[in-house]
Design a protein around this nucleic acid. Sequence first.
DNA 1: ATATGTGCAAATGCTTTGCAACGCC
DNA 2: GGCGTTGCAAAGCATTTGCACATAT
Lengths: 154, 154
Amino acid sequence: MQRNTRQRTAILETLSRQADFRSAQQIHEQMRADGETVGLATVYRNLQALSRAGRLDVLVAADGESLYRQCEDTGHHHHLVCRECGSTVEFLAPRLEASMTAIAREHGFTDVDHTLEVFGLCAKHSGSGAKKTRAAKDSGAAEDSSTAEEDARA
Amino acid sequence: MQRNTRQRTAILETLSRQADFRSAQQIHEQMRADGETVGLATVYRNLQALSRAGRLDVLVAADGESLYRQCEDTGHHHHLVCRECGSTVEFLAPRLEASMTAIAREHGFTDVDHTLEVFGLCAKHSGSGAKKTRAAKDSGAAEDSSTAEEDARA
DNA sequence: ATATGTGCAAATGCTTTGCAACGCC
DNA sequence: GGCGTTGCAAAGCATTTGCACATAT
């Protein structure tokens, strides 16, 4: 009962070529630019459906915008996002997970789930006089996403 | 150049009595309920100004809504938020901070900042049949301000 | 066939802003 | 008295939804 429409396929296809997180609108624009004819609402509906189905990774930016990205790694992981260019690095931090869970339990909490996003300036933007603590808005879409892809380990 | 108006004072005063995070709208409602006459825009403007000035703690909910709370502890800390009742517990986790920073540095990131929020079910709501992994919207602390007076705290 | 998916436009919900009136300092 | 502040309403956004039409299966 999950049909395979041209639009849905196109969305997945587009996502499969994006290394970093993109907003629904950016994805939509991208598709139009690539010659696809898709409605924005459809993009939203599909991104939502796909993420619900666990096929996409969703990251809520500091300003509340939802960013999507193809989910290669089903496992639990977090992101290191550059405030300047939006490039991301995934990382696992089992130790953090453990401590967090422990702390939560200590306070009587159960069924815990957490959100951990780290924002900073990636290597190539370190020097830039960026003083903003919660921006990362403008950047994204453009050219130079450094596309860091590997994985860390705590 | 930060004047001391009735509204601004009232906002701070109201916040000083709230243990948990509240949305701008909830704060506004609360104030009206308390007999204060304040415009919603003013509440937004002040919450923004105050948080920019470091006097308020801001937490962005999973759906993008901004929640504010008086900042008693200037130090860096995180929150444990109950999905059911919205009660919060603050916690410090120096070890996590350290690891996070280390990981970021390993990837060449500088000027890092992070967001870590833990959602779960507090002690008194543990049994509740809450299966939703990222809802917390419909439940507790939302709309009906009339009865939202008493608050939990783990 | 028919339940799903799609497109468009209108509707939401949170937040911001323009602008004239207002009130601290 | 001047400049930050306030209020209201209108504007902005990202996202959602109603509905008629199109289409995978």
